[in-house]
Write a protein that binds this DNA or RNA. Structure first.
Lengths: 340, 340
DNA sequence: AGTTATAATGAAAGCGCTATCATAAGTGAA
DNA sequence: TTCACTTATGATAGCGCTTTCATTATAACT
């Protein structure tokens, strides 16, 4: 029933030529007589023959397949990156396999073993900061991985990571958002970030601080809180912030680390009966597909994540060892109101 | 700089043994003397050696990698399936690559070539009905693909598809929703489906019709409309339906094909100033992560898509040739109101 | 006709492993 | 001491391709 895959020998003997000739036809070499070519092609068609990329890979030392490592496919942010990367890879003739984050950061079984054993031609790693320990571990694993195959990073990559990378210009994005909110008359602007990290100057909270400075607004410690970057974390973070402040000090605008956090903030604000956007403006980041369907529709930053993924694949394949940032675009939707 | 991958010969000569012995150590065979084993292991560690799964695959005829074909990773529905499938595959020691839908339904370049050339151990295909022509084409391609490797389908698989498959029990789900809405007093219940298809008795619109019959409600043709299954399509579908009806005939409840469509319906209803859920109840399906954050929070059906993906992998690996349906669960969230 | 360049093909090595078979060394019973 | 039997190891043949090199057959020159 199943087609026991034909081999080049089957084709050769069927066509009455040597395997070398079949190979020439397969690879489109020109020095084959038309008559022979035709015979061989006929045999190929008859058997539905497809050369094994496995066997080819043994010789060429290239599997024409890439890997992508990311924390969580269910987060649409990563799905978008994957989607863009995958499409670009396909265009370049590569396939792409997904690997769980644990293939990098676990010492339980030698990290990266899965990736290395499969002899991928390269791997894209979406990094995520979780803790100083974790960060150190990840950097070690990445360095080790890099000894085996090209690695390109995506995400918030600190300057001291010696890897080619494609990142968002986080600081600039945040500064733009702060400026935008200031232009609407906001002065009490809060920031709900992800895991706190203090050394990396490229992170979003740094941009938030810079934005405040640009606008000569005072920095209020209780306006800057951290969470895990999820919707639930956003709810809790905003809840705790408001609980800790007298209502007259409540921020009039919240900048959320990403749209998930923003969604959580909306939920929490609604629970407290705050009218949005009048009593609370919220800005997200990532521009998830659901942003236009939230209440109010969420103003967000389109970070062109598919383009990010695609660009990472280009760097990976070309071997360029550089760090790049991608353009972004603020999408106004109405979750921010002018302060009267 | 880069580690030119060590081979089994490097290890053998470094450890002063034959490659056969190294291979025995690698595969954990017992008939190796402890002293030798130790020597070999030391050499392996010294070189950071990882056996090539490519070379292994040449012999074992198994790549230990699976494929998944789906229309659109950006649709969280498919991301959830992929996520579940991927995790299960990893547990079983397989890697998983994503392939675009075009690898199945294009005749431009021989379909499935990418899949076959890579000698995958099996592939999961998420099918989507688009048109009769497309459907026929897909079935042909799938049959051809099956000659080369095990195939398991996910999605709305018609009875005449002779493939192992994991599907939702669409009809039963829809009947449950209709019954639920009826129990809230609704009588004018609309259904916004995906692409219309008339032969397959397992589709959601059939369940909707059955649900009406269960409740002895009349079927109103203008309450059943079709679209493309996206949020935008949902907006348009509901808009057209309401435009075509006098307000006194407007449905009091809408069953959406999925949460995306439901999101679109909410947007359209809001645009028309309909108060939800009082003037319009909406039920979705798929229970996307954003469902709880919509306004009102969307009542939906959790179709356990990760479990679906995982189960498909199990069927693929075990080779069981059966069709299965997965359990589901209605999640009430408040987008449906009782009719006074 | 004789020599040389050119085109078309085949034979065979090798990619990095596994698996089979052969060989060598060690053990205990007759 | 010899024989059968186990245990540890090596030599080697593939797996399905690509690639190099050698070998023809054919055309193009003196």
């Amino acid at each position: 029933m199943r087609n026991e895959n034909a081999t080049i020998y089957d084709i050769a003997s069927d066509a009455g030529v040597s395997i070398a000739t079949v190979s020439r036809v397969l690879r489109g070499e020109t020095n084959v007589s038309p008559a022979t070519r035709e015979k061989v092609q006929a045999a190929i068609d008859r058997h539905n023959y497809r050369p094994s990329s496995i066997a080819r890979g043994m010789i060429s030392k290239s599997t024409h397949s890439l890997g992508i490592v990311l924390p969580k496919l269910l987060n649409p942010h990563y799905a978008m990156i994957f989607s863009g990367a995958h499409e670009e890879a396909r265009k370049m003739g590569y396939s792409m396999s997904l690997f769980p984050w644990s293939s990098i950061d676990t010492r339980a079984y030698d990290p990266a073993t899965m990736l290395v054993e499969r002899r991928l031609d390269g791997v894209i790693v979406c990094v995520e900061y979780l803790s100083p320990d974790h960060d150190e571990q990840v950097l070690l694993s990445l360095r080790e991985l890099k000894r085996f195959m090209p690695v390109v990073l995506i995400g918030c990559v600190p300057p001291w990571y010696d890897f080619p990378a494609v990142s968002d210009n986080n600081a600039a994005m945040m500064r733009q958002i702060v400026a935008y909110l200031v232009s609407l008359g906001h002065e009490k602007i809060a920031f709900i970030g992800g895991v706190q990290e203090d050394k990396d100057p490229l992170r979003r909270d740094v941009g938030y601080m810079e934005g405040l400075r640009d606008a000569r607004l005072p920095y209020t410690a209780s306006y800057r809180v951290y969470g895990k970057g999820t919707a639930t974390a956003g709810e809790m973070a905003l809840g705790n912030m408001l609980d800790a402040l007298k209502p007259e000090y409540w921020p009039t605008a919240v900048i959320a680390l990403n749209d998930l956090v923003a969604m959580g903030c909306q939920a929490e604000a609604r629970r407290r009966g705050l009218v949005m956007p009048d009593q609370l403006s919220i800005v997200g980041c990532d521009d998830l597909f659901c942003a236009p369907y939230l209440c109010p529709p969420l103003t967000s930053i389109n970070t062109h994540q598919q383009r990010t993924g695609a660009r990472a694949v280009q760097l990976l394949i070309s071997g360029e060892e550089k760090k790049e940032t991608v353009e972004w675009e603020m999408i106004e939707r109405g979750s921010c109101a002018r302060i009267k």
